[in-house]
């Protein structure tokens, strides 16, 4: 369409071939601890928010990360419809468009819902979290990453 890499109407200059489509999962989580606000933010405060937060020191502490069930405030053996209802009622509070405007991150709530509402990913999540309680956290390994998104297992 407009001004893309693929249009070659005039051929006035060397055009790029169409871009290929690929996906990777390399993640650094530099911005993990960074909370974007939904109003235009001053750049200065944004930078400080990131620079002041040290992901390693912050999450390597003793605080156990919330499980996805805890994020959605449901029981481990909640039915799919209970999970849906929980997600919807949390959305009504924490979605940025919602009137009540809670201060929790809706993205986190949605990610938990995305995992738990899909039977296959919920099963693999449950399996991983059971392994997690058996094996426990390995020292200094992926301490800066949220374990449920980590693929190193």
């Amino acid at each position: 369409m407009i001004g893309t890499l693929t249009t070659s109407a005039g051929g006035i200059s060397e055009r790029l071939p169409p871009l290929n489509y690929t996906g990777i999962s390399g993640r650094l989580h530099l911005f993990n601890s960074f909370r974007f606000t939904y109003k235009p933010i001053s750049t200065k405060s944004a930078f400080h928010a990131v620079l002041d937060a040290n992901p390693v020191e912050r999450t390597a502490g003793s605080r156990r990360p919330e499980s996805l069930y805890e994020v959605l405030r449901v029981d481990r053996n909640a039915t799919p419809s209970e999970i849906k209802t929980a997600y919807r009622s949390l959305a009504k509070i924490y979605h940025p468009d919602a009137k009540l405007h809670g201060d929790r991150d809706f993205i986190e709530i949605h990610n938990a819902y995305a995992t738990l509402s899909d039977p296959a990913s919920r099963a693999s999540y449950d399996l991983k979290s059971r392994l997690y309680t058996v094996v426990g956290r390995r020292q200094g390994f992926y301490t800066c990453q949220r374990w449920e998104t980590d693929q190193c297992w």
Binding site: L19, N20, Y21, G26, F31, I107, H110
Partner: peptide
């Protein structure tokens, strides 16, 4: 754009909004 001419999507279409994704190059 990465790897010379490849389009590398960071936020895919149909991602629920608000959305935040990070990728390392």
């Amino acid at each position: 754009r990465a790897n010379r001419n490849t389009f590398v999507p960071i936020i895919d279409r149909n991602t629920t909004l608000p959305a935040r994704r990070e990728m390392v190059f």
